[in-house]
C-alpha cells in the first residue's frame, strides 16, 4: 500500500469520526440549501428572477457549494495543528515518509471530502429545484463545468486550512478559519447583492471569495460578462429604485477567473513550501 494512501486513510478517519466535522461539512450545507430554497417555493419564474434573484437555483447551488468548502479550512487546520501540538506530526516527520507523500497524505482526504460536498450540494440542490419553476439541470454542460470549477476551488480552502494549521495552535486555527468562513458568507455575495453596497464591494472584490462564487455562478448560468454593458439591465433596474450600484472592470468574467485562480495557486504553493520546511530532516 502506498505511503500516501496509508496517511490519507488515517487522516480521512480522523475527520470522518469527528461528529462536528460531519455536521459542518455535510449537514450544515444541506440546512443552508433548505433554508434558501424556502424563498423560492411557491414563486413563479418571473418572481424568482425579479424578487429573489440572489437565490435563483443556478446562483444559489454553486454558492452554497463554495460555502460548504470553506469549512474544510477549519477542520484541516485544526487537524494538522492538533497533530503538531500532540507530537503526532513529529512522529510522522521521523517516519520514512517523503515530503511530497506527507503533503499529499494530508491534502488528498480533504479533496475527497470536497468532492463529496460538491456531489451532495449539487445533487440535493438539483432535486430541490424540481419543486421550483426553475429546474437545475444537473447534467447540462454548464452545470457540470460549474461543478468541476467549484470543486477545484476547494483546494484554496484546503490549502488555507493546512497553512494556518502549520503556523498557529489548534485554538488559534478556529478563530482564523472562522474569519475566512464569515468572509465567504458575507463577502462572496451569496446572500446579498454586493453591487448595491459599493463601499463594501470595493473591499471584498480584492479577496478571492466573491470571485470564486461569481465564477461558478456565471459558468452554471452560461453568463460570461465581457464589458459593463453586460450589466446594463441590473444597473438600470437599481437606478430606477434609487439604489447606488457598483459594477467595474473586476466584474469581467476573465478577471474573476484570474483573481480566483491567482489566490488558489499562490496559497497552494505557499502550503507546499510550508510543508517542505516543516517536515525536512535536519541531520544529513
Amino acid at each position: 500500500m502506498s505511503k500516501v494512501w496509508i496517511l490519507a486513510k488515517r487522516n480521512r478517519k480522523e475527520i470522518l469520526r469527528d461528529p462536528l466535522s460531519l455536521v459542518f461539512h455535510f449537514i450544515f450545507p444541506i440546512f443552508m440549501l433548505l433554508l434558501f430554497f424556502c424563498f423560492l417555493f411557491g414563486k413563479t419564474e418571473i418572481e424568482i428572477k425579479t424578487q429573489v434573484s440572489m437565490f435563483h437555483p443556478y446562483k444559489l447551488i454553486p454558492a452554497v457549494a463554495i460555502f460548504a468548502h470553506s469549512f474544510l479550512s477549519l477542520f484541516s487546520g485544526m487537524m494538522i495543528a492538533k497533530d503538531r501540538s500532540e507530537s503526532f506530526f513529529s512522529r510522522l516527520c521521523i517516519s520514512p515518509l517523503t515530503q511530497y507523500q506527507f503533503f499529499l497524505g494530508y491534502f488528498l482526504p480533504l479533496v475527497e471530502i470536497a468532492f463529496l460536498q460538491s456531489i451532495l450540494v449539487y445533487g440535493l440542490g438539483g432535486a430541490m429545484s424540481l419543486l421550483t419553476p426553475i429546474t437545475f439541470h444537473l447534467f447540462s454542460i454548464d452545470v457540470i463545468a460549474s461543478f468541476i470549477v467549484g470543486f477545484v476551488f476547494s483546494s484554496f480552502f484546503i490549502s488555507f486550512g493546512l497553512c494556518i494549521g502549520l503556523l498557529v495552535s489548534d485554538k488559534a486555527v478556529g478563530g482564523i478559519a472562522s474569519v475566512g468562513i464569515n468572509l465567504v458568507a458575507i463577502g462572496s455575495g451569496m446572500f446579498m447583492p454586493l453591487a448595491t453596497i459599493p463601499v463594501f464591494k470595493k473591499v471584498v472584490q480584492f479577496l478571492p471569495f466573491y470571485h470564486m462564487v461569481t465564477v461558478t455562478q456565471d459558468i452554471a448560468l452560461g453568463f460570461y460578462p465581457t464589458s459593463l454593458t453586460s450589466f446594463q439591465f441590473e444597473i438600470e433596474y437599481y437606478e430606477a429604485l434609487g439604489i447606488p450600484v457598483l459594477y467595474n472592470a473586476l466584474d469581467i468574467w476573465w478577471v474573476h477567473s484570474f483573481i480566483a485562480i491567482f489566490y488558489m495557486v499562490i496559497l497552494f504553493g505557499l502550503t507546499w513550501i510550508m510543508f517542505y520546511r516543516s517536515t525536512r530532516f535536519h541531520q544529513k
Partner: peptide, 17 residues
Amino acid sequence: QGIINVAFQEQAIAKKL
C-alpha cells in the same frame, strides 16, 4: 534504515483511531 524510533513526551497518537 529505520534503526531508531521514539515514544514522545506527548503521546503522539491518533486520538480518533
